[in-house]
Amino acid sequence: MLSAVDAAPRQLRLERDDDATCLGVANPMMSWRRPAGAGAQQAVQVRWTDAGAGGERRTWRVETEESVFVPWPGEPLRSGQRGSLQVRSEHDGGVSPWSEPLRVHVAPLAPADWTAQFITPAVGGGLDDPAPVLTGQLLVEPGLVHARLLLSALGTVRMLLNSRPVGTDVLTPGWTSYQHRLRFHGYDVTDLLTVGRNDLHATLGNGWYRGALTWDLRRDLYGEHLALLAQLELSYADGRTVLHGTDETWQA
């Protein structure tokens, strides 16, 4: 029988980040801060709770003295999977309380997980034109329990959902090596949606993709056309997940 340790592990992270709502790997590395005043750690218990209606719970025990970059102990996570993660540690015959739960939502892990298409204005949107605004609509049914917006662009994008800004970051999706990869961000937009029609407005900017770069202030360095990629994942109480992505129905 293990005796109690008063304090719980703190600052649970996956892949160096305490925000796991757009987790990009199936087998994430785990890190945490050990309980204050506890002795040497001999093992850690890891508990995963699914976010589905059943709330299935699984627990693993890992014998390790490490608390930084501990390998994921369970089966690989799936694209779109949601749940919460907790750890508790064993120290010199004692066991700590469970840590605060870390919310986890796995990002699309393969190209097939995307239904959205890149879209660009058919008219306007040139290098010297005003910043284009792309607009779309979607219908939300009753019973919505969670919604996530995945957002990327060739250029930069500012998204409004029902006239309210999505996220607090700017110059989304940020700098990247455009020849090799394109970054995307994930946002919990559950509180921005209402049952019925919802409006999306995306303003595109040149950013690093098409803006002035290098000592010569060259433009169009990576491409000529701005583009938007946006995908909404709607999770309903009956277990359905409905995807809405940018396509030819959007307007500019």
Score class of each variant (00 low, 15 high):
Leu85Glu: 02
Gln117His: 13
Val157Leu: 04
Phe118Thr: 09
Gly167Cys: 11
Leu161Tyr: 04
Val87Gln: 00
Leu85Pro: 00
Pro121Trp: 10
Gln117Phe: 09
Trp114Cys: 07
Asp169Asn: 10
Pro142Met: 05
Gly126Met: 10
Ala110Ser: 13
Leu144Asp: 08
His146Phe: 13
Leu151Phe: 03
Gln179Arg: 15
Ala110Arg: 14
Val157Tyr: 11
Val70Ser: 04
Leu77Phe: 04
Gly174Gln: 01
Glu100Ile: 03
Val133Gln: 10
Arg78Gly: 07
Thr120Ser: 15
Leu151Arg: 04
Phe118Lys: 10
Gln86Glu: 11
Leu149Pro: 02
Ser89Asn: 01
Thr168Ser: 14
Pro76Lys: 08
Pro121Met: 10
Gly126Gln: 11
Tyr178Trp: 15
Pro73Ser: 12
Glu65Gln: 14
Gly174Trp: 02
Ser99Lys: 02
Pro73Cys: 10
Gly155Pro: 11
Thr168Leu: 13
Gln117Leu: 11
Pro76Ile: 06
Pro76Met: 08
His146Trp: 10
Leu160Tyr: 04
Ser96Tyr: 06
Pro142Trp: 04
Asp128Thr: 13
Ser152Cys: 09
Ser177Val: 15
Gly125Asp: 10
Trp175Thr: 15
Gly124Trp: 12
Trp98Leu: 08
Val95Asn: 08
Arg82Met: 00
Gly93Ile: 04
Phe118Glu: 12
Arg158Gln: 13
Ala116His: 07
Asp169Leu: 14
Leu85Arg: 03
Arg148Val: 03
Arg158Pro: 00
Ala147Tyr: 01
His180Phe: 15
Gly167Val: 07
Gly93Gln: 08
Val123Asn: 12
Leu138Gln: 11
Val70Pro: 02
Leu149Met: 12
Asn162Gly: 08
Val87Thr: 02
Leu151Tyr: 03
Trp175Gln: 15
Ala110Asn: 09
Gly124Gln: 08
Pro142Thr: 13
Gly167Ile: 11
Val95Arg: 08
Leu109Gln: 10
Gly126Arg: 13
Trp98Ile: 05
Gln86Ile: 00
Val106Met: 05
Ala107Asn: 02
Thr172Arg: 12
Gly125Ser: 12
His180Asp: 15
Ser79Glu: 01
Arg164Gln: 15
Arg88Thr: 03
Ala122Met: 12
Leu102Ile: 01
Val157Lys: 09
Pro132Phe: 14
Pro97Ile: 05
Leu171Ala: 14
